[in-house]
């Protein structure tokens, strides 16, 4: 597979994956760019992987996780406008008793933003990419047990902080 073919077929999905990881349009853009620049420069290594798509996703996930360690994304964060995303808004500021469904919906998204990155990545890989535990562990570079625990911790946080709206509607 050539780099161009890869970009042609995989870039849209990678762009959405970055969006789910970062929760922010601009950060997603930077994350995809940085990942794909590296992929292009090391293309031989990428195609040598068993599943190039998986390899690139792992690169992207690692870059995203590195963010916490204050690497390349820090400068991006310094430029980022905190107003341009609901994600960075304080989730408690979101009106939880709002009659409008969309506000409640955004609450899930807002709580996602408060999760530790490993947990968020695990949840995205499970519920957006629909991957299995071993696949998630492989991408995160952790054990299957850790991957499962990231997911279950994330779910219990989400239940605790955004679960009430479903109860209110009698869905549980």
């Amino acid at each position: 597979m050539t780099y161009d073919e890869f970009v042609e077929t995989r870039l849209p999905a990678l762009s959405r994956f970055a969006m789910m990881l970062t929760g922010d349009h601009h950060l997603a853009q930077d994350l995809v760019q940085e990942t794909m620049v590296r992929a292009q420069l090391h293309w031989r290594r990428v195609v040598a992987a068993d599943v190039p798509d998986r390899y690139v996703r792992r690169m992207m996930t690692n870059l995203y996780l590195d963010w916490r360690r204050g690497s390349w994304l820090r400068r991006v964060l310094l430029w980022a406008d905190p107003e341009d995303s609901a994600v960075r808004a304080d989730p408690s500021a979101v009106p939880t008793d709002h009659a409008e469904r969309s506000a409640d919906r955004d609450l899930v998204w807002a709580v996602l933003a408060t999760l530790p990155r490993q947990q968020r990545a695990a949840v995205v890989l499970r519920y957006y990419e629909d991957l299995s535990d071993p696949e998630i562990a492989d991408i995160l570079g952790c054990s299957v047990i850790s991957a499962r625990s990231y997911i279950s911790k994330a779910l219990s946080t989400l239940r605790a902080r955004a679960g009430h709206m479903f109860e209110r509607e009698g869905r549980r």
Binding site: V108, W109, L112, V123, V124, Y127, Y128, L158, A162, F166
Partner: peptide, 9 residues
């Protein structure tokens, strides 16, 4: 919550 997550994504 899982369904809500999928929907939110």
């Amino acid at each position: 919550i899982e369904d809500e997550l999928r929907a939110s994504f």
